[in-house]
Computed example of a mutant assay.
Amino acid sequence: MNNPSDEMYDEISGAYAFFNDQLFGGQLPGCLFTLQRKSHTFGYYSPSRFLRRNGNGKSDELALNPAYFAHRRIEQTLSTLVHEQVHQWQAYFGKPSRSGYHNAEWANKMEAVGLMPSNTGEPGGARHGQQMTHYIIEGGPFDVACKELLASGGMLSWIDIVAMRVPMSPALLYGPGGEPSEPEPVDPTIDIEALTTAGLLQPATPKDDPKNKRKYLCPNCKLQVWGKPGLSGLIGCMACELAMIDAKEFVEVEAQPEAEAE
Rank of each mutant, 00 (worst) to 15 (best):
S59Q: 04
I136C: 03
E258P: 03
P188Q: 13
G236A: 13
L217W: 02
G114W: 01
P170W: 08
D6H: 11
G129N: 06
H102A: 02
E148N: 10
K248I: 12
P176W: 01
K109V: 07
M8H: 07
K211D: 15
K147A: 15
G94P: 07
L28H: 04
M238N: 11
I137V: 15
P257M: 12
R37D: 10
K38D: 06
R72L: 15
A67T: 14
D160V: 15
G30P: 12
D143E: 11
E61Q: 00
P229L: 01
F33P: 12
P141A: 13
T80A: 13
P176R: 04
E138T: 12
V113I: 09
L23A: 05
F69K: 00
L32Q: 12
G236C: 06
I190L: 12
S46P: 03
D10G: 10
E241T: 13
N119I: 09
D209W: 11
T133W: 07
G199I: 00
E7A: 07
K215D: 10
Q202M: 14
L156R: 06
E258G: 15
I245W: 00
N103Y: 01
S157W: 07
C237P: 08
Q256Y: 05
D10N: 08
N220L: 00
I137E: 03
E179A: 09
A145H: 00
L156T: 10
E193A: 15
D10H: 07
G14H: 04
P176I: 13
M8S: 11
W89L: 06
Y68V: 14
P4W: 01
